[in-house]
Simulated assay, not measured.
Amino acid sequence: MSFCNQIKKRFIRLSRGQRKVAQFTIDNPNVIATHIASDVGKLIGVSESTVIRFCYAMELSGFSELQEKIKADLMGQDDKIEQSHPLLPKKNVNLLNEVMNRDVASILNTINIINEEQFERAIKVMHESECLYVLGLRQSLPSANFLTCTLSNYRREVKLIQPNAENIVQQISNMEENSMLFVIALDDNAEDVLTITKMAKNKKVKVIALTHSCISSLRGNADVLFTVGAQKSALAETITAAHSLIHALVEGMVAQNKKQYTNFQKVNAQFDNNSLYLEKTLSI
């Protein structure tokens, strides 16, 4: 049995902090194998002592032995000649159950690695910022559209940064200190996203980033960074987890002042109804 499978068998018996370390180890074995315990703790959002306590809970002598176990697992994976595509179901497996269970697993993994203090900080920033900008390029653009539309149901001053150089530069120049930039970067190509994020930080804008990798280059440039999905998840599963977290963040923002956001919804709905009535009247 691989060591990661041993972790899964003991998962339920671990403390909450140790579960975060366990899930991270399962999803990011290469990071465990190549980083020291203190760095791993920072990436996960737990203390170094929690990482060590996880090792003891797994009946290991310490972090070095954990690295040895994980390296052995990785060498065993290299010996496998054939790997099935994650989106191709095995024979006699119900496709509906297979796909939706992977989505559930991606969401559950995200729950386990989310830092609650970071979550609370993010929703506070979203609530207090006067203007919210949303950035998502390429495969992240649909998720950026989803966040923009969801936020627009509850508040004014929500702007999706359009993916062309002229609009990006113009909108970044319009940002003020009381603005916030929400960056969604779910693909591997983050060079341009990083450049835009640095431009926003130079304007002293708060940045919340949502990525698929805990070692994303955005980490040092975001006030809050969330990792969604798992290392080996297909993009579709990662997007599902991202949208679930987005939903939770918006709900958290609304909970900061439910009356304020509910009133905006009512006024906005009334405005839409009046506009629709006017359009019908003019067409007669």
Rank of each mutant, 00 (worst) to 15 (best):
L210V: 07
D223N: 11
R155C: 10
V46K: 03
S275W: 12
R121F: 06
E116K: 14
R13P: 07
L151Y: 04
N273K: 08
L249M: 12
K71Y: 01
V40Q: 00
E251K: 14
E98W: 11
L235K: 01
K90E: 15
I168T: 03
D223M: 11
A234P: 02
T25M: 09
I113F: 00
H85F: 06
K201P: 08
V267K: 11
S233W: 04
V158F: 06
A122W: 00
V158R: 09
Y56G: 07
T240L: 01
M253S: 15
L160T: 01
N263Y: 02
E48C: 10
N92Q: 13
L60W: 02
A234E: 05
H247M: 15
R121T: 04
A222M: 09
I113T: 01
G17F: 02
N257H: 09
K232H: 03
Q260P: 09
T281V: 14
E237D: 08
I36G: 14
L245C: 03
L132T: 04
A57G: 04
I26W: 03
R10A: 08
I32D: 00
V125L: 08
K280F: 08
T227C: 05
I114N: 05
I32P: 00
L147W: 04
I81P: 01
E157W: 06
L235A: 00
Q18S: 10
L88C: 13
L225F: 10
R19E: 06
A122N: 08
D79N: 14
F119P: 01
L276Y: 15
D187F: 07
K266A: 15
L88F: 04
K201Y: 07
K71M: 10
I107W: 01
Q67T: 13
I7W: 07
Q231H: 09
L218E: 03
E120T: 11
L218F: 06
A230F: 08
N145Q: 03
N202F: 05
K201T: 14
I81W: 09
N94R: 12
K9C: 14
A190C: 15
R102L: 08
P86V: 08
L66S: 04
V31L: 12
F54Y: 07
Y56N: 05
